[in-house]
Amino acid sequence: MSMEMEMNKLEATAAQQAAGDVAIGANIDKIYYGDFLAVRDAAVDIEKGKITGFIGPSGCGKSTVLRSLNRMNDLIPIFRLEGHVHFLGQDVYGKNVDPVVVRRHIGMVFQQPNPFSMSIFENVAFGLRLNGFKGDISGRVEKALRRAALWNEVKDKLKQNGLSLSGGQQQRLCIARAIATEPTVLLMDEPCSALDPIATRQIEELMLQLKKDYTVAIVTHNMQQAIRVADKTAFFSVDMTQGGRTGFLVEVGDTKQVFENPKENLTKEYLSGEFS
């Protein structure tokens, strides 16, 4: 099946799913790297127009799960997933689904700022050109940069290389690059971990702004950040009982409930360790 056909099919079902309020319905049974069971039992819905935070100790598989949502893990040859990830009425891991198409609909911002070695303008226009967008590219670039709260800082130097910006600016550039094509969902994998506190604050404010137009899922190791930005929180933990390190989902709910009144003991213990 050609890529265009698949995309049309995805777009056709977009309307159907608009009725519901779940953007991505992940129902992951198991994720393997070779023989290593990295994650088990992770069923989490990414709700529309909300920010869903993934938290938990290191090695709990929160990043792995996030990166499975847009099939980024397919870049790792030994990756294998059992289960389903429903998006636009289809299983992202279905037989006829091209991961390239999935990634065009589910944008991603990474831990390390990773702008391309090209001008600021071309960085943001990258996805537009990739998707063969024929309309007002400059207008879209400006809009994306404004939304990423970067426009005022770069509007006079759009031709400069994206790598000439500071770390925080680079990360906002990456956000602008990811949202320029108006993806349906935006995934953020610890987007502030390489940034200083001021840049972190800016990105957090930006996330709250983005929520108006986007569905966001974010992995963070920073509990305070989850409390500040996330509407819903998914808490993951590590199971080391069988000699391995297998991450799993403990509970998911409204952020307030998960932090103030967790249902599970594991969550309670982890949070009391974090905050005591």
Partner: peptide, 23 residues
Amino acid sequence: KIQEAAYGMGTTKWEAIRKVIIP
């Protein structure tokens, strides 16, 4: 991380090579 950025934007392998890796 640069390759991830390219694939994360939804490039095919050839697009990633031509538009990001080679430049």
